[in-house]
Design a protein around this nucleic acid. Structure first.
Lengths: 107, 107
DNA sequence: CGGGTATGTAAGCCACGGCTTACGTTTCGT
DNA sequence: ACGAAACGTAAGCCGTGGCTTACATACCCG
């Protein structure tokens, strides 16, 4: 999926990851998130857009404020990919290790 | 760790991920990897450097060729972070869901 | 209804990153 | 020993992305 690429790109930026981790503690509004971060509020707003497009967060209006929270669906998707890749890569790695040991120390 | 940032950044680029996934099938040399990829061989070389700095791959000389293979240690590190984060975020998410259901449909 | 609050968006700037070509170095083959 | 192969690195180009300031919009409160 192109979704995976979006998720990886979204998680690659440190500031964006800071926003995301901060959101892991519970739902927050934009200004609330911006407070304590070394960037301006519009910057946070832009980061949230990227995270939303990647399916990592969801938002809903709450009066004049806009509350964001983590979307477990997006996070699960990327985790599933990592798990699948993990199995594949590890299998290939072990196969290579065994191939190296083939004539190294036979009983 | 800054290591995590390097890993995320490394995995964010599509071409670099293509190299990495190709490496999951088994160890390969640089030119071998470049064949079939839409970029030049030096580009692949640069990508491999980034992946190596991120602890995602390791390399060893084999004659004139340089063989790269996946480093499971780096991959495990990022997976561990994702697992930890997954638990935390999911817990907060469920707590929020329960808080919403609090007065919604009580028996 | 008027003022302050909370947010998204536009425009513009600047740095960084990915790609290519060109070059230098090491190793293999004959 | 000499040419070719395989690779890393330097230099340079150009698009993209993150940040800021400025502006427009929706909402609450009195």
């Amino acid at each position: 999926m192109a979704n995976r690429n979006l998720a990886f790109v979204a998680l690659a930026d440190p500031t964006r990851r800071a926003v995301f981790e901060r959101l892991a503690d519970g739902p927050r509004a934009v200004g609330e998130l911006a407070r304590g971060l070394p960037v301006s509020r519009p910057a946070v707003s832009q980061h949230l857009k990227v995270l939303k497009d990647a399916g990592l967060v969801s938002d809903h209006a709450e009066g004049a404020r806009r509350v964001y929270q983590i979307d477990p669906k997006g996070l699960g998707q990327i985790r599933a990919w990592l798990d699948r890749f993990w199995d594949h890569a590890l299998a290939a790695f072990q196969a290579e290790v065994e191939r190296d040991d083939e004539g190294a120390a036979p009983p």
